[in-house]
Amino acid sequence: MRLAPGGEARPAVFLDAGVRTAGSARFEGEGVWVTEGELTRALGYHLSAGGLCLGDRCFPIADRSALTQGGRVELRGVARATERPIVIDADLAVVSLGVAAPERRERLASRRAPELTLPDLDGAPRSLAALRGRKVMLLAFASW
């Protein structure tokens, strides 16, 4: 069992597959604790009888007492339960959760083109979805 989280929460940044949300967290040793409300607000997960859930999908929790204490949730445990990679930089107060490799492969293998909306040179939003009904060759280039 993990020690109960103590100390004050401090401003933190959550990166959910790169998507940035500002919030607060307690950085305790190797772990990071957030309130259940913050977990939902920043990362979309909620706790239920079925485990740790994101929308309709729930991940079983092997040891609930190690994951949650006193209304707070430990994010390394969240990463373990969901098989997601996690990077914690306590000095920077940043938590980055990547996409699980199996999930990413599943998305790619589905062959569904992801919904993307990006600005054009004039700043107008352009989406892949708007091109439905036409063949599309998407070319990614970079000036690095």
């Binding site: 083109a113 990006l118 600005p119 063949k135 070319l139 990614a140 970079a142």
Partner: peptide
Amino acid sequence: MLDPERVVAEAFAMINVPTVVWIDEDGRVV
């Protein structure tokens, strides 16, 4: 389209450029 946050590389698992993807009329990567 400009992609300062590199969401295209993330979405399609690209590791270099130029990389192309073909998408058919139904939004399916072919």
